[in-house]
Design a protein around this nucleic acid. Sequence first.
DNA 1: CGGGATCCCCCGAGATACTG
DNA 2: CAGTATCTCGGGGGATCCCG
Lengths: 239, 239
Amino acid sequence: MRDRRYGQFCGLARAAEVLGQRWTLLILRDLLVGPRRFSDLEAGLPGIPTSVLATRLKELERDGLIERSLRTGSDRSVVYQVTERGQELRPALEALSRWGAATMTTPHEGEVITQASLVSALRAAARDHANRPSARAVYQIEAADAVAHATVDEHDITVEPGPHPKPDLTIVAGPRYRDLLAGTIAPADAVATGAAELHGNSARLDDFTRTFQVPYSPTLTDPPAGVAASPGTNQGDRS
Amino acid sequence: MRDRRYGQFCGLARAAEVLGQRWTLLILRDLLVGPRRFSDLEAGLPGIPTSVLATRLKELERDGLIERSLRTGSDRSVVYQVTERGQELRPALEALSRWGAATMTTPHEGEVITQASLVSALRAAARDHANRPSARAVYQIEAADAVAHATVDEHDITVEPGPHPKPDLTIVAGPRYRDLLAGTIAPADAVATGAAELHGNSARLDDFTRTFQVPYSPTLTDPPAGVAASPGTNQGDRS
DNA sequence: CGGGATCCCCCGAGATACTG
DNA sequence: CAGTATCTCGGGGGATCCCG
């Protein structure tokens, strides 16, 4: 566990020392959705070696971003959860998410959509209450095997994993779904082009796209992605 | 140059693929201050291997964050500068800087302060114009061997490297200077405790601390830093 | 002298197997 | 379920060398 320091008295350098290791940001993304067990994390991060996950969890605990606790009750298992210090990362991770979302024109081959990635993407896309419709609504969003729901009122937006019992509108995302959030496709055309399939009060789609928005960088040349293919399959949450 | 991908259709994962390599964030920090030559970057990033710097610059160019250009005129040399896509990273890097700044209670042994780190730290600390005094002012800030100046008016704050010909107030930072920005030390006590030495209109210090602010995490336990020692020496800008 | 390329060494990540 | 152990291999740290 050597010193991967940068030797600079600088906030960005300090952040990079803690967060710059491989998989660290994605582990935190998942834990910011909610407490998770070791095997939950492993399932939500396809490809991570167990040894790396174990090492990262120890480092993050040492650095004060997360803590282990023993779940009480029927299943006495270990859960990891973010500390207050870890919570403070939220604005920075959401800014990074939005920046990265500009390159997501289409999934690369084999890319999956996990429950945590869907939730954190929607949280990052949530607009300020001054810049969105004031109507209350509950949306359910489905993409590949991931499901999340968003509860919107005048003050807050909360996004949680899993389905909702009575959503006003359910949106089943197609391959070009992201273009809908980017404003490249008009909501009215979304269903026609296959960007999304709707259930429920489809008139709410307009409100939805004005409530959640991702940036769009027209100058981007995404590396050739072959077929704009199936997002693959999701592992992870017992929702 | 293998695929250090994460295999997830997720903005944060995409960002981590581009930015998560070692030294990348610090290279971008320096380039966001202004165009730099290879040797400028090398000098401003003590400890970076030239091979890593060359590799990172190629990757960043490939990913569209920076571009090489040949400087015209007397010195025909190569300069690297951020593209518009690179500029879009500013909010995310500033959020990371602020988060990391909370751990900067005292410099670790051997940590240096570079020109670019000082400039980017001040830019990240600049408060919204709704939350700061409206007075115009020019501040010069000196920390270790680094110097920067900030020009504040009602609308904007600009921070640039190097000294200013006629600052209203010059602040020479001592070891506990950051506590001043964090609000842990009252401005009136700053000079007495050695947190800062002032030249010029010292009544402006109050405005300064209300214009630039860094977060403070009281729960942090910084690893033992030995002596709260000399920040070392700065390399870098020909200012 | 600026702008790298090349070399060696070793750490850390990936992959898989195994254990409390 | 929650990790540890072991192996291999690519990439970073560090020094040196090279080219226009």
